[in-house]
């Protein structure tokens, strides 16, 4: 870890190191962006609308969830709330980089945080823990993935437009498959079993009770995570 006396800088060199570091993630993000673009086309958005969404929102999972509950006209508060809930994890990621971010104020901090996504964050944490002291690394990695995201969602939209896929076509399963594969990466061990099982049961139940809404996602996530949190606290107390 960084010692509090160590100087932390913010340079072009750090930025480009971040860009190079995130290059491997570009290959992983590109198919996800294409899936999101195809899904947006299937949901009835225009090319400008999905591109604007990628430019302003830039958070893949939340864009996919919002598009999967998209109606015409969209339920503004439902999609915004879905984005908020799905992206709550980002609120937990920023504080981890405090040893870098606390040394700066203004655009360096707030622009870096705007570009922060799962991969750029993970690489930045790795570098920071290894003792690297250039905070521009986060902005570099985030920027290359930002460009990748905008271009691949646009490309996916055009592919969807060219293919004219009918509803229920297996290519739309790609959106769900993306979540399943992210889930497989998130599995940390048997400690996740109980919270995940509670989430699955509550979400399935609420989906039956309130069909056509997205509340089941929030209900399942809250029930599962509170169960896990309370269980962990009881274990610590013993």
């Amino acid at each position: 870890m960084i010692d509090s006396k160590d100087p932390v800088v913010f340079t072009r060199a750090g930025f480009w190191r971040g860009v190079r570091g995130a290059m491997v993630a570009v290959i992983g993000v590109a198919p996800f962006g294409i899936v999101c673009g195809i899904t947006a086309q299937g949901a009835g958005l225009s090319f400008s609308e999905i591109t604007l969404m990628s430019v302003l929102v830039y958070a893949g999972a939340s864009q996919l969830v919002a598009l999967s509950i998209w109606t015409h006209p969209p339920d503004i508060f439902a999609v915004a709330f879905a984005a908020f809930v799905v992206n709550l994890r980002l609120a937990l990621m920023g504080p981890v980089l405090s040893p870098w971010l606390d040394r700066f104020k203004g655009w360096r901090v707030w622009l870096s945080l705007f570009t922060m996504v799962d991969h750029s964050w993970a690489f930045a944490v790795r570098e920071m823990n290894a003792g690297y002291r250039d905070a521009a690394y986060l902005l570099g990695g985030g920027s290359i993935l930002y460009l990748t995201w905008i271009m691949t969602t646009a490309a996916g939209f055009l592919m969807g437009e060219a293919l004219h896929l009918p509803p229920g076509h297996p290519l739309f399963f790609a959106a769900l498959a993306a979540f399943v594969s992210v889930l497989a990466q998130m599995w940390r061990g048997m400690g996740d079993l109980l919270p995940w099982a509670v989430a699955a049961c509550v979400a399935s139940l609420v989906a039956q009770i309130l069909p056509g809404t997205f509340w089941y996602i929030v209900a399942g996530a809250l029930a599962g995570s509170i169960t896990g949190g309370i269980r962990d606290q009881r274990r610590r107390a013993q």
């Binding site: 999972a61 809930v85 799905v86 709550l88 994890r89 937990l92 979540f179 992210v182 889930l183 998130m186 599995w187 940390r188 996740d192 919270p195 995940w196 509670v198 989430a199 699955a200 509550v202 979400a203 089941y216 996602i217 929030v218 209900a219 399942g220 996530a221 029930a223 599962g224 995570s225 896990g228 949190g229």
Partner: peptide
């Protein structure tokens, strides 16, 4: 636990 349970849900 939020990220995992959210995607499960």
């Amino acid at each position: 636990y939020i990220p995992g349970t959210l995607f499960v849900s």
